[in-house]
Design a protein around this nucleic acid. Sequence first.
DNA 1: ATATATACTTTGATTGATCAAAATAGTAAA
DNA 2: TTTACTATTTTGATCAATCAAAGTATATAT
Lengths: 204, 204
Amino acid sequence: MVTLEENGSKVAMGKVSAELAVTPGTATSMVKNMERDGWLKYYPRQGVSLTRKGKKVAMNMLRRHRLLETFLVETLGLDWSEIHIEAEELEHAISEKVLEKLDEFLGSPRYDPHGHPIPSKGGTIQRPSSQTLQNCDAGITVRVESILDQDSDFLKFAREKELLPGKAVSVIKSEKLADVITLKIDGREPFSMGFRSAEKILVV
Amino acid sequence: MVTLEENGSKVAMGKVSAELAVTPGTATSMVKNMERDGWLKYYPRQGVSLTRKGKKVAMNMLRRHRLLETFLVETLGLDWSEIHIEAEELEHAISEKVLEKLDEFLGSPRYDPHGHPIPSKGGTIQRPSSQTLQNCDAGITVRVESILDQDSDFLKFAREKELLPGKAVSVIKSEKLADVITLKIDGREPFSMGFRSAEKILVV
DNA sequence: ATATATACTTTGATTGATCAAAATAGTAAA
DNA sequence: TTTACTATTTTGATCAATCAAAGTATATAT
Ligand SMILES: [Mn+2]
Ligand SMILES: [Mn+2]
Ligand SMILES: [Mn+2]
Ligand SMILES: [Mn+2]
């Protein structure tokens, strides 16, 4: 959803239709309605970009989503691999009033359990790192910022390997041709992962 | 919603249509769909009654609603006059898993902030008192069980008068003809209320 | 530059929710 | 019993969401 239009550029209709799991024709029709209502600007055959108004509600939805995820893990003790889907529903049902009470109760956290920054009430959000594990050279040590993939199984795998936000990761080797990177976290056994997966880990 | 079909008898279509705020024709159509799906039995021109299956999900929804109300007051500190509407939305968005975690977190409360019993996970619920303040004679002292009305302003009034679940209330006088009852709670000033309002307070 | 493939938009149809108005059944009054 | 009233159901129409299939524009390959 929201995650698509982070940057200022246009999102292709194909992405929209795939993300919303509707046919391309339906996506076009939806997007036209949303333009009519002022949420976004639609450039036929190019894509859509959020208006200021649209960006505002998108940020607010991201705030809802991430505060809820934090609550589900911190307060109720759910696993970080299962909270995304739950928050996806709850974010639409929670009122502004309850949301702010929740924020207060949680102590205004800045990051959700996946390491994603939580937008402020005003709608500003901390820019994420542009580095991923994929573009890290052998020998250096980095700190995990966040996990991009919301897939439940991938998150379980990441926790298993202790690939968690805040953790220090040493890059043992990075083999471009073989498309694989080998890592070491704390005193644990080194392990390898493909670039495809490494790209899902944001680091600083 | 659910509150209508507590007893085993039929609910008139007029009630259904009013409660759902749709035209009578729409109510008829909805009810037919729900019968097709097995949620209720529809007796044309008489009304509807829940099937076992329907009663089960209704009880579950009541459990959701009341646990959420409890959470909103106990954990987030919202006022009891504003939680009903909030819970009305959230009850549809919360999953079974999150609900049970919430129940655990709250310590499996038996009553919500209005004094309403919370159905067990299995769907059983404690029978409410059949006494209201309206049918209390002068001189006796009763304990408030619950407030039936969900209206925000009425709830604010009740709290103002300390007419809260668990409180002991002495009936100073009850004047049938004048349709008014006079009450005293703790050491406070006595006050009066009409039978219409007194009927909204369940006591034991 | 031409042809082909891909991404996207349009069109036309279907479905479901809803309403207003007309028809009907059941109830109360005369 | 007949009439009148009220609650409910039916009917016919509208609207929004969605899809499949057909048409069109743009990018890519030859
Ligand atoms: Mn998420
Ligand atoms: Mn997250
Ligand atoms: Mn309630
Ligand atoms: Mn309640």
